[in-house]
Design a protein around this nucleic acid. Structure first.
Length: 602
DNA sequence: ACGCTCGCATCAGGTGGGAAACGG
DNA sequence: CCGTTTCCCACCTGATGCGAGCGT
């Protein structure tokens, strides 16, 4: 396995108390400003994020809401002194004043706050924080200090890539990530405003190279890299209700190696080739205009999903990764060997989405049938009239979430992470990902926000997405669907039900099952989330997969191993959905009803 | 006449492959 | 020399504009 494989998916989140006043990073602004705000260079270059770290926490201590806690079994390097944005924000002294967000550009300047932690000089400062981590995972509620919970929507897909050590192409003009980051957030104050942004930090202090079919370290990382390391979601700032309404997709985030780029800097994150990076999600409470509240130090929450770690490259090294990209990225359909034959087949027999299929549908595993086009048509790019949405800049439609893959995936799993302080000191670099699935019924609990419930609906109404896994996988393309278009952006939010509802009694059981499965498969966890539908057509999927892989074989081993794992996963999923007390059909109907009720209420 | 839906064509942009260029 | 980076290519997706057809 590659270095990152098998990494424990312990997610680490951090809520770092800021000792200093800070403002949110500017969305707009030029690179320089952005970079300066979150400089990675300059300071001690030695700040890296060490994955697999988190304060240990047992599910029991986790939030009562039954969201299955993203059990942090991993370890996260925790600097003695932590800052809010330890890694990239360490440069404090170097930060020049900059506008905070596009909407607030020039209005607020980067304050020293983000620089916290910088002074520590510790090499791996990213996770700092004090206080209880999961223990603070409270049910969504109103009031300050509540902890947010974050789901990595397309986690199954990320896991697939992670197994082979994810690689992300970086180009001068910028290249989108694939899979891209897509989250669902819960636990925010409905009316409070937040800035949501992604920061990409060095995952380790090494320079990597692909040798002998494997990624091996090769000297030390170049810490002097400059450039923007933060991508602020274009809809920032916005209310908690807004962020929780739908998936928060970062599909338009671009990675570049062009430090001098001056255009579209707000959409570009500057990285260095052959370095390993770890994306981090930050949620910062701000005033309505995007300025961080200077009177509260506990308004920043950070989340890290180790499975999203990747090595930046200018050309793909591992053929397995290349094949995965081709298989799942709709823009790469042209590289699928048997594309023609595949699409001449009947719709039901198709192994991969048709060109017209929803983009979202593409972040799924091959072998599944999905033709949600009408519903998910604009998931990838927002093509709806902007004024119909809460925010014109929304990358992903609100309703998307409803239809989002997560739904389906919901049946099989939900990856949830509660914000927690990175106080954990675990030093273990275990690479084993912690697979904590959400129970199949979680969706109903989330219904109020439509997002999750919609997912269920999708799976229900659309036979194309038989299994939940798909929905999750497809989430990567952003989620937006026709239903969202009809949704009134100004709809009042019904009280969010306790997340606990999302986890059926059997959730623990399911979780243990999954973990067992994962362990038993030697880390082949990538596709366990695939839906049972795909399992039904597994043979077809395998055929497709095999065909696609004929073209190239990785030195270190073909991905054919996926098949067994997939089967197991699917079987597991089936067991969960069928064997358990969970009735997908009933649940879907219920969710659907709830969904409509929610959106039609005045 | 007006509004709506649908299909088609066009365009911009994203994708990996492969060859050439670059640099240590 | 070798590894890395850059550029161009063909292919595909999604957004947009336009006109035809239909119903009110």
């Amino acid at each position: 396995m590659l270095g990152g494989e098998g990494e424990r998916s312990a997610f680490s989140s951090t809520k770092e108390a800021a000792d200093e006043r800070r403002k949110s990073p500017a969305v707009d602004g030029d690179d320089q400003s952005a970079a300066s705000r979150y400089p990675e260079h300059g300071v001690g270059a030695d700040r890296y994020y060490i994955p697999a770290t988190v304060a240990k926490q047992s599910p029991e201590t986790a939030n009562p809401c039954s969201f299955i806690p993203y059990t942090p079994n991993g370890t996260v390097y925790t600097p003695s002194s932590a800052g809010r944005y330890p890694s990239s924000l360490h440069l404090g002294s170097v930060l020049p004043p900059a506008g905070f967000s596009p909407s607030t550009a020039g209005r607020s300047h980067f304050s020293p706050a983000y620089q916290l932690g910088q002074s520590t000089g510790c090499i791996y400062p990213p996770y700092t924080g004090s206080g209880s981590a999961l223990g603070s995972m409270a049910l969504p509620s109103t009031g300050p200090g509540l902890r947010a919970q974050v789901y990595l929507c397309n986690r199954p897909l990320w896991l697939k890539f992670h197994r082979h050590q994810t690689e992300m192409i970086i180009t001068k003009q910028g290249r989108r990530m694939f899979p891209f980051l897509s989250f669902n957030i819960a636990g925010l104050n409905l009316t409070t405003h937040y800035n949501v942004f992604v920061e990409v930090v060095l995952a380790d202090p090494n320079h990597w190279r692909f040798q002998g079919g494997k990624w091996v370290t090769c000297g030390k990382a170049d810490n002097s890299s400059q450039g923007n390391k933060v991508y602020i979601h274009p809809e920032s700032p916005n209310t908690g209700a807004h962020w929780m309404r739908q998936e928060i997709s970062f599909s338009k985030l671009k990675l570049t190696n062009n430090k001098g780029t001056s255009h579209s800097t707000s959409q570009m994150i500057v990285l260095q080739s052959l370095h390993k990076y770890q994306p981090r999600l930050h949620i910062v409470e701000v005033t309505e205009d995007g300025v961080e509240d200077m009177n509260n130090d506990l308004k920043t929450q950070s989340f890290t999903f180790p499975e999203t770690q990747f090595i930046a490259v200018t050309a793909y090294q591992n053929t397995d990764i290349t094949q995965l990209k081709i298989d799942h990225n709709p823009f790469a359909k042209g590289f699928r060997d048997n594309y023609d034959s595949m699409y001449t087949a009947t719709e039901n027999d198709r192994l991969t989405p048709s060109p017209t299929d929803s983009p979202r549908a593409h972040q799924i595993v091959p072998g599944a049938r999905y033709t949600m086009q009408p519903l998910f048509q604009d998931q990838f790019v927002n093509n709806l009239p902007q004024n119909r949405f809460y925010n014109s800049e929304r990358a992903v439609p609100q309703t998307n979430s409803l239809l989002s893959p997560q739904i389906e995936d919901g049946a099989s799993q939900r990856w949830f992470v509660a914000s927690m302080q990175q106080g954990g000191n675990s030093t273990s670099t275990s690479n084993k990902l912690d697979l904590t699935p959400y129970d199949g019924e979680y969706s109903s609990s989330l219904l109020p926000y439509g997002i999750k419930s919609l997912s269920m609906q999708t799976s229900h109404a659309l036979s194309y997405y038989p299994d939940s896994a798909f929905t999750t996988m497809s989430a990567g393309w952003g989620s937006r669907g026709p239903y969202q278009r009809k949704a009134n952006s100004s709809l009042p939010w019904s009280p969010r039900p306790s997340p606990s509802a999302g986890f059926p009694e059997g959730s623990e059981k399911v979780k243990s099952q999954i973990e067992e499965e994962v362990n038993g498969s030697g880390g082949m966890i990538s596709s366990w989330t695939e839906t049972q539908q795909s399992a039904l057509s597994l043979d077809k999927a395998d055929s497709y997969s095999t065909a696609c892989k004929r073209r190239r074989l990785s030195v270190n081993g073909p991905s054919t191993e996926d098949s067994p794992a997939d089967i197991k996963c699917e079987d597991l999923d089936t067991a969960v959905t069928n064997g358990g007390s969970y009735s997908k059909e009933a649940s879907l109907s219920k969710s659907l009803a709830a969904y409509y009720s929610f959106y039609t209420n005045p």
